[in-house]
């Protein structure tokens, strides 16, 4: 029983961390219409940043700053935000293809740099020497994991509430206005490039937060953790859950992570030994099909964005869809 429980806690922790990432992407894509093709780079910047800042001194690579944990996590988020700011500054004034390609490029370059630069982050061996916060007091057991889960859950809820308020605020309206009609927003004196940059950086900081928590959870990060796979998974979560809807984003994260874990388990359990090598390929075909299938048959996702009229007239009306 305790085995099942501890697995469930493990699953829920990972899913909650991914849900935070999906919320960050939702701000970019769902609310602002910015395509981030390199989710994993910002996630990875958070993880690497946190671990390098908060880790103990290691020979051969950067680190050992021993910064107290909350600051290390903030540092990771700042690293993700800085990267987003640079990419955004270069591309957000141009047509949308540029952001897509540049972010995709960031992800390729980030993984490539982390894999090769041993002096920076241990290269292929990854960043070692990170102690999970409060480990001395709580140990490594079930208690630690359940407390860690509760902290992640609290951060997830806080992120959700923050984004809900942000989206409902005048800034949120501005984001949607720019997404729907950039020129109209511009004619009202708004600066689309600046607003988009703010949204892109904020979303990336949230992605960095998720990455930092992920790194903390495993107390280790290596180039294997920043493969494009994660980008696809996080997208699938958002598209299935419903872009533009924060609850949908969280729901999608749990659903897709559950499906991914279950399909991996089923393939390793029931597929013949000689086919085991191909389980990855099968899972990728599945996730690609989920993305394409959703776009063709239910592009609004399982929980669609609720478009509300911000200033209600005499008859309150909730417009659903278009």
């Amino acid at each position: 029983m305790i085995g099942v429980m501890s697995y469930l806690v493990f699953f829920a922790t990972t899913a909650s961390i991914l849900a935070i990432a999906v919320l960050g992407l939702n701000l970019q894509w769902g609310n602002t219409g910015l395509f981030n093709g390199g989710v994993v780079a910002f996630f990875g910047a958070g993880a690497y940043g946190t671990l390098i800042l908060g880790g103990t001194s290691q020979e051969g690579h950067l680190g050992g700053f021993g910064v107290i944990y909350p600051l290390a996590l903030l540092g990771g988020m700042a690293a993700a935000g800085l990267m987003a700011w640079i990419v955004g500054l270069l591309t957000l004034r141009l047509r949308h293809d540029y952001l897509a390609i540049a972010t995709f490029g960031v992800a390729v370059a980030f993984e490539n740099l982390m894999r090769n630069a041993e002096w920076l982050a241990g290269g292929a061996k990854g960043v070692r020497g990170f102690e999970r916060p409060l480990r001395a007091a709580l140990g490594d057991g079930f208690l630690y994991n359940i407390l860690f889960f509760l902290v992640v859950l609290a951060i997830l809820i806080a992120t959700y509430l923050f984004l809900e308020r942000l989206v409902a605020s005048p800034f949120g309206r501005l984001l949607r206005a720019i997404r729907e009609d950039e020129e109209a927003a511009q004619s009202l004196g708004k600066s689309p490039a600046k607003v988009r940059l703010t949204a892109f950086v904020t979303g990336s900081v949230i992605l960095g937060l998720a990455g930092g928590l992920y790194g903390t959870f495993y107390a280790f990060v290596s180039p294997q953790d920043v493969l494009p796979t994660l980008t696809f998974q996080i997208w699938a979560m958002l598209i299935v859950g419903g872009a533009g809807n924060n609850r949908g984003a969280i729901f999608g994260a749990f659903l897709i992570w559950g499906a991914w874990t279950a399909s991996g388990w089923a393939l390793s359990r029931f597929a013949p030994i000689e086919a085991q090598l191909y389980t990855g390929s099968v899972q990728f075909v599945l996730i690609g099909s989920v993305i394409v299938g959703m776009l063709m048959w239910r592009p609004e996702g399982l929980l669609p964005e609720r478009l509300v009229v911000s200033q209600r007239g005499s008859t309150p009306s909730n417009k659903q869809g278009e």
Partner: peptide, 11 residues
């Protein structure tokens, strides 16, 4: 369309 193309690429 970008998402669709990424999905197709995976497939």
């Amino acid at each position: 369309m970008i998402f669709a193309s990424f999905g197709m690429a995976l497939i």
